[in-house]
Design a protein around this nucleic acid. Sequence first.
DNA 1: TTGAAAGCGCTAACAC
DNA 2: GTGTTAGCGCTTTCAA
Lengths: 339, 339
Amino acid sequence: MVDRRSNKRSNLRDVAKAAGVSIATVSRVLNSPDIVSAETRRRVMETIEDLHFVPSAAARAINSGRTKMVGALIPTLDNAIFAKFLAALEARLGESGLSLIVATTDGDPDIEARKAQGLVDIGAEALIVSGVTHSHAFDELIRRARIPAIATSYYDEHYSLPTIGYDNAAASLTALEFLRSEGHRKVGIVHGPVSNNDRTRARLSGLEKLAADVTIQSFETTLSIEGGAAAAREFLKAQTSCTAILCLSDVLAMGAILELQRNNVRLPDEISLMGIDDLPYSSFSNPQITTIHLPVSRMGTYTADAVIQWLDNDIVPKSKLIEAQLIVRQSTKTYRSQE
Amino acid sequence: MVDRRSNKRSNLRDVAKAAGVSIATVSRVLNSPDIVSAETRRRVMETIEDLHFVPSAAARAINSGRTKMVGALIPTLDNAIFAKFLAALEARLGESGLSLIVATTDGDPDIEARKAQGLVDIGAEALIVSGVTHSHAFDELIRRARIPAIATSYYDEHYSLPTIGYDNAAASLTALEFLRSEGHRKVGIVHGPVSNNDRTRARLSGLEKLAADVTIQSFETTLSIEGGAAAAREFLKAQTSCTAILCLSDVLAMGAILELQRNNVRLPDEISLMGIDDLPYSSFSNPQITTIHLPVSRMGTYTADAVIQWLDNDIVPKSKLIEAQLIVRQSTKTYRSQE
DNA sequence: TTGAAAGCGCTAACAC
DNA sequence: GTGTTAGCGCTTTCAA
């Protein structure tokens, strides 16, 4: 019969007493079952079941130093690209018994540093951040706490932390190259804020390689559908001779498409438009958006695996390039200059 | 001079020794500073700074029982509606020094129960779940662990847990009533899977009140843009005499709009369409979607406050109805039968 | 293969 | 106001 006198969680001692062994033995059954005799192990495990015993994570943490918690610092949950990444990350970490603590930074390095400190304080065993632009305080924290940390969404093998992500510069270059190969020589670039956003900066820098072949004109805006729409308005007002628009994020592309259509601009006949990211709606919009697919789910899974390896086997991950992929859909069209 | 001999985190004893006080005094400075003399307090705090001392969360948890962690179980991160909710939740919890542990359930009560157990095991002080459909194992867990738990996205004052959410039935009824007031008498209903989704079921049930006035025809599909598009195809194939479509989620509305436009159906001239949720793109699409705004950010903030009150002051929250709001935009139009 | 016992870093009850 | 001390629930030597 199970002892139900008390309501509090049972502990090692309760189990030990009920099973007629010492607490050390119970602890062994939990942590290294193979060094306990089969019979004892069976009896103890049975008792554990009976008493609904669950080891205290706090007590375990205080002794072993392992909390099984991983902290993720992301700019925002509002962008599907990060949400999808987190989903994959959480799924894979969970398989290995690791919990994910989420903190949003709003893209602000100071907030990031503060929240990172908080995560470390509560015992996060590893940190996952976005991009490679971080505050000094953050770098110091990683150094002092000697905590495994991985930078994602950005590939840079020379960064102080292992990076797992795409080559943002290459992604935008691929996009622009595609437009050029389709005959476009003047392209409007719509992008989000440059400050504190290394992904945007990298994507912009990628375009420079084609500076000789393609003339570009930039429109900076906020990173939202509304921002994309606003940029499209600016674009129209500017009366450029651009034959295509490259949005450095699909959210922006979405906003731009809607605004252009509101102004009766036919896509892709009058102007070609493409994005980068490949969000869910990009393949369902009218027209479907030609874009660069960034495999964020794969990045999440890969990052989780890297963290697990680092934590369990002390294997520091190498930086990993996640290949982006051009997806040609309906929003772009070959341009032929009328001679 | 700071002692740098050791690399490990300094502890209470280190601080006490360096400041020339007892560990109890240091503990007091940390937890109830006002009962320590100003001078002592100053000296101790200085030492704490010097040694970069950070109290061990695990040790604190083992003694005080407080881990400062809250677990959230949500169906998916892929839907902006949940992501926005989480963002608000995390923000407000963070202000009170609480961390958010995220677990996704894929809408499966069994996965939910398993992950809920995991959250409790690692010391979550409270649980936040979505909806009111949960497994027996989950209910048992809440009961046994006596852990504060709040159900969100669904208002039901009779549920065993406090609920903070909207009246889903009322939301869909409001939508259908609006369509009726606009002259629509036959309406196609596009909705997500009914199984394991009480929100969808509630929204469907809300429509029944108007059964006498409005004839409806249902189209069940998956909860995604693609699902919405597929449902729209079905709708067209069915050749109904419906003059409006009510999508029980904006994601579905989005997919449906795109598919209808692909089939050259003019909105809202040939058919009216509305949604429920009010996602970011709903106000930017062409046409902008008439919908029911569900204030998920407010729900997140409110839920966080409720959790904090419960944890800090043992005040069990009352169920709270978050008011939804009809937002009339461009995708709907008055219907006049041609007599 | 098992048990006894010494901590881990902290909080809180109690004493001065 | 401050110090002493007994735990919290566990892991981990060290002996047996």
